[in-house]
Design a protein around this nucleic acid. Sequence first.
RNA 1: UGGGGCGUAGCCAAGUGGUAAGGCAGCGGGUUUUGAUCCCGCCAUGCGCAGGUUCGAAUCCUGCCGCCCCAGCCA
Length: 561
Amino acid sequence: MTDTPETPRDFIRQIVAADLASGKHGQVVTRFPPEPNGYLHVGHAKSICLNFGIALEFGGLCYLRMDDTNPLRESAHFEEAIVDAVRWLGFDWGPRLTHASDYFEQIHGCAIQLIESGKAYVDSLSPEEIRAYRGTLTEPGRDSPCRTRSPAENLDLFARMRAGAFADGEHVLRAKIDMASPNINLRDPVLYRIRKAHHQRTGDAWCIYPMYDFAHTISDALEHITHSLCTLEFEDHRPLYEWILDNLDLPSRPRQIEFSRLNLAYTVTSKRRLAALVESGEVSGWDDPRMPTVAGMRRRGYPPAALRDFASRVGVTKKDHQIEMGLLETCVRDELNRNAPRALAVLDPLKVVLHNWPEDHVEWLTAPNHPERGDLGERSIPFTGEIYIERDDFMEDPPRKFHRLKPGGEVRLRHGYIVRCDEVIRDESGQVVEIRCSCDLESRSGSDNPASQRKVKGTIHWVSASHAVQAEVRLYDRLLATERAEARDEDFRAGLNPASLAVREGALLEPALATAAPGDVYQFERLGYFVADRKDHAPGRAVFNRSVTLRDTWAKIGTSA
RNA sequence: UGGGGCGUAGCCAAGUGGUAAGGCAGCGGGUUUUGAUCCCGCCAUGCGCAGGUUCGAAUCCUGCCGCCCCAGCCA
């Protein structure tokens, strides 16, 4: 996996290839630096595929680095979830699982360096004052009165900050850059703040914690990251990133390159909003199958290879974009079509009695598990005189081109026989409760009888009544009713799709499905791909989640007509 | 209105002065005992707009227009 692509697919890979070709770097080193304060989502998956993918393709290394500089928001639980997600996506960081907190001592040393060289100072303004002094987008800021403190005084103050002599918020350490800079990130950014909080890894060893820009830049340099890839919103931070590199004595000089973050239509890809959905109970958790989190997509039955494929098809640019859900679904279908065994299941059962079928006779039919892959084997399906079909597959007064069951019409029962609808039975309310059919006993699928070659317009799925396995099937749809979420936080939950989850309690499965293990994905023929739920599916209680429907050109004709 | 970015088809995206790749979606057709899969074909006289340079411009220049990001002791 060390082949360098002939034509790098995107501008970042072009830069990497050029840096390798010119000898600027002997080996590429990247990193994926999540903050352990939430679950990873599809946008992170894109970044993971980029960073780990580049390392793989160019024979380099990629670190998985936890950006744990804010003990108030982070937890070991989230860290575990992140590690799980990256591993599940198929990437390997070897011994390179690191933490910004691993470098707290060195980062602290860097702060001292800056103080000594007169490039950082302790500011004793309140948070409100700092904000006021910062100016606005169009007006320059003003120097803090503390800006002229001597290195000696700053050293002393900073030492006492570290020693815990002050309360949260009393002082901060700031870089001395330029309060009049048109780039607000350069108006003496805060480097360290006091936080008397327990850190999940360093415990109570520290009561001052470095800010993102400072910790991140130094961590990159210490790990000899060659290409530090991040999203567009950090573009304005790059001058600060470079300032830090310029003014410190560090072992390497990484280059930051920005790309646009992934936006997916009909869902949210903001950690804050995902957290809001979890906390409000709108979804069952971070791994709810409707969530665009890696955990959610996993539980939904999306294969990791599909997500990698998606990341590669989406590309890497600096353009703002909004990717259609359809592309993700196509990737999922492509992968599952190749690999998922087929099975028969009925979500909304309608009883069918074959009145000429020999009473109590059970015939075990043999069916391949995949139409193109013999290696997936075959299984037996019981055929009997009382079966269930999908309610949608029968219409008393169907439109033209309806290739399913209708009064007097014939259909092929998948892998079985051709049946003709002779009679429709309804209850007092007029609801169709049973169809009585005659079965062409010579028409068994795959038999040598000429009758088995008869062309009938439709083939439908079915399940033997006496062998059916009861199941709960959860049908998922897009999280949002509109393509993009409302801009305002207060409004975005109002845009949720009320039909994002529909439960079919009375679904019936062919008996072979009784042995499905949690996480197994099948194609329920003509319906879609379904995964045995990782949490709720158990022997004796079948629970399947619909990963994605099959492409359905018939449904499309129906809606456009 | 300061600074930083970005505008190529419905959605993505190549393209770096030589006459608009590819994918998704869509449309048409073929195969098919899953209306699936698979296969074939079609789909930008035009690259935000207007000028200019050039034999030649999506690519260079000028001027507009539009969209995104930044004023956390969050990342």
